[in-house]
Write a protein that binds this DNA or RNA. Sequence first.
DNA 1: AAGTGGTCTAGACCACGCG
DNA 2: GCGTGGTCTAGACCACTTA
Lengths: 237, 237
Amino acid sequence: MKNKYVEIYHNLVKDIQKGEYAAGGTLPSEHELCARFETSRETIRKALNLLSQNGYIQKVRGKGSVVLDRDKFEFPVSGLTSFKELSDRLGQSFQTHVHELTLVKEAKVCRQLNCQEGSYLWKVVRSREIGGERIILDKDYLRQDLVPDLTKDIAQTSLYHYIENELGLDISFAKKEIVVEPVTVEDEEFLDLNGHNQVVVIRSYVYLGDTTAFQFTESRHRPDKFQFVDFARRTKV
Amino acid sequence: MKNKYVEIYHNLVKDIQKGEYAAGGTLPSEHELCARFETSRETIRKALNLLSQNGYIQKVRGKGSVVLDRDKFEFPVSGLTSFKELSDRLGQSFQTHVHELTLVKEAKVCRQLNCQEGSYLWKVVRSREIGGERIILDKDYLRQDLVPDLTKDIAQTSLYHYIENELGLDISFAKKEIVVEPVTVEDEEFLDLNGHNQVVVIRSYVYLGDTTAFQFTESRHRPDKFQFVDFARRTKV
DNA sequence: AAGTGGTCTAGACCACGCG
DNA sequence: GCGTGGTCTAGACCACTTA
């Protein structure tokens, strides 16, 4: 919390969550916020832009920063959220089974990740059990030159937490594709398909802050348990 | 194109598309761009932020604005793209069939849209035919107080074009949910399901720039033809 | 007419990457 | 050390909404 505008952002989020500003009403004007936080207007505006990007407010010219009804926006299970965050949020009992944790050479994935064709990749296969049923199958490929060591324990708890907090890698953006595909023998083996013959597949390429391609993930979901929520703000250009 | 930073953005996009700046390389520094466009640094930075948000560049501190490989990011079929844009992009022959265009009172939808329970809504049901198969069923509800007149012709060509360009309404953001559901009798009637017994359902609530809830849409896709592409940039807060 | 946010300027200092 | 982007300031003028 060293940046002033981030701090102001958190301050305002807290106020909104406390109900200080009712949905449909407005925040104090930018001028007032300047006075309250003893800062310049551009800094306030940066904080407000963050609020807007995260769906807390919508700025209306001549009117003010309108507070949005966050209940209606029951939020981003999307983005780059990890399974751990997801299941924490759902508040259901969950469990991760690690089926494979090996070093492999896969030319095709290497090409996609822009790394040496001969270099090693970690392959991690995990199934996710929620409420007693195994409904998600995650297959991850990570560049071994960037993640030298990986243990079953890490794969079991949270890969992302390890990568970001222990290794200090800066995950920055991802390209994602969602499609529906027929089940594979692997799905049959590791999931409780419950009669379903199709799965929802999310394929992601994950990049670091310095634009290095870093990881490829295929997340296979039983269709009846799949949900993707998105808040899209239109950029006018 | 009156805003300087938007103009600069378009300029740089054009340059990138012409291959003036190779993927993996950097744009000129912010200082240089200030000189070239004869403007201040904050204005340049606004243009660069737009480029970044739209997946053209990634800014790396101490290094510069790295140009991303746009081919790898084959882009937002997501966001608020309309069917017309989508099919234009796919370059396939397509056709829209209007099955229903009526004024209805639906208390449940009204509540979701925050409008008077007794007020009228346009209900529009359309199927989309691509490559000879009807694979998408769109059900739209629009507030009649905001869209007074609607014709079959408009529903047939492009609802969004009419709403934005003719009516001048400012569509600003949407909340979207994607799930998989069993087919309904309506799906059976209006789609060529080809044996599929599930469809991918995208439900969206669309809002105007002044935060008015405006439209509810349910878009039902045959699973083998469904694809959703997303470019997610992580916001650190 | 007064108040709101949207754009723009011309500086300043800082943190980081690279040679 | 130099050049890069990241943050911050203290103004200015404009466009829009509301009373």
